[in-house]
């Protein structure tokens, strides 16, 4: 397994070289589909590679390093929801289409919708990445997972421009939308089961993206300090700056160690994984905050790459549950574990 992970890592680095930050989205997406990354953790029985979450994390870590523009995470999560829905009509067909590159995202922010008197759905789904290239959206709503064709009557897709330059986010408004019963994946208890199935992958994915980004941001910062000269010496020679970089490295290393151990730990609860994600996004934030400061004035220019990391890190913090909530849940869980 070690070998396979390093092979995956090599492949990911070759496909997306470190000097190509924020690569073109559509080209990236095609490449990702060709590389088979959508099938990475798909069970072999469903035609996938059947690799573990560590394989998923390896790819997403590398995607995070280059500030990937392709919506691999929402697509992988939608695929998992479909895999976890045995009753979905044409399930195999959907899996094949998505693995082949048809883009169907899961929303990564909450949505809400209510059934109207006439049986139509009204509501709003937020946090849909790159919806302009999607055929359908797999909407995770309270008590319901449903596939919504983007061009169906009663569906309006609106871009919500972001500070983050590496991704595009959309809202989907539903008004008079009549869901096709054949496209409903799960309702009520079944929906809760689907949620529990995909939530761990979401946490691992965001943590990996964040720590990949954090490590690339630190590398770039250290590189800059080594070459930028002031007071007749490289800035990297100043111990005040060295120690800050060393602390960032330590934070990244321990958050990474937690990621690699928890992502393959079957005993890890959703809360354990959520707290891990919170640690990863906090670490990303800590690193990008320092990245700008340690670059001085150039770090505040649009032309420089630092802001791209900053903005992505800040958006990651908002996805799939807040750090405050996850930490509180982890505290409660630990309290129960150490019962008096």
């Amino acid at each position: 397994m070690m070998i396979e992970l390093s092979e995956l890592q090599d492949a990911a680095q070759k496909a997306f070289p470190a000097d190509g930050l924020v690569p073109d989205r559509d080209v990236s997406w095609k490449l990702i589909a060709e590389m088979g990354w959508l099938m990475i953790d798909l069970p072999e029985a469903d035609g996938g590679l059947g690799l573990g979450r560590d394989a998923l994390a390896t790819i997403l870590f590398e995607q995070g390093r280059v500030l990937s523009t392709a919506p691999l995470i929402p697509a992988l999560l939608a695929l998992q929801a479909i895999v976890a829905s045995p009753d979905l009509a044409g399930r195999e067909d959907w899996i094949g289409r998505i693995c082949g590159g048809e883009y169907v995202p899961l929303n990564l922010l909450p949505g809400s919708a209510s059934v109207q008197a006439d049986g139509t759905l009204a509501g709003r789904i937020t946090g849909v990445f790159e919806a302009d290239m999607a055929s359908h959206v797999l909407a995770g709503l309270p008590g319901r997972y449903v596939l919504i064709p983007n061009d169906a009557p009663g569906v309006t897709v609106t871009e919500r421009p972001l500070w983050d330059r590496s991704r595009r986010l959309f809202d989907i408004a539903l008004d008079g939308f009549r869901p096709d019963p054949a496209l409903v994946l799960a309702e009520d208890e079944a929906a809760a089961r689907v949620h529990d199935r995909i939530s761990p992958a979401a946490m691992v994915a965001l943590a990996a993206d964040s720590l990949g980004g954090a490590s690339a941001a630190l590398d770039l910062t250290v590189e800059y300090l080594k070459t930028r000269r002031q007071f007749d010496r490289p800035l990297a020679m100043f111990q005040a700056l060295k120690h800050r970089c060393a602390d960032l490295k330590t934070h990244i290393a321990s958050a990474e160690a937690l990621l690699w151990s928890r992502c393959i730990d079957d005993a890890a609860s959703n809360i354990d994984l959520g707290a891990m994600k919170a640690m990863a996004t906090d670490t990303y934030f800590m690193v990008v905050e320092e990245m700008i400061q340690l670059h001085g004035g150039i770090g505040l220019t649009e032309e420089h790459q630092s802001h791209l990391f900053l903005k992505r890190a800040l958006l990651n913090m908002q996805l799939c549950g807040s750090a405050d909530n996850w930490r509180e849940a982890a505290g409660r869980q630990a309290l129960a574990k150490f019962a008096g």
Partner: peptide, 18 residues
């Protein structure tokens, strides 16, 4: 308090993991 405790146990787990 729960947040601080939750963060601490997570960091302690990370210390074990590293």
């Amino acid at each position: 308090v729960l947040r601080d405790f939750g963060q601490l146990v997570t960091r302690a787990d990370a210390a074990c993991a590293i």
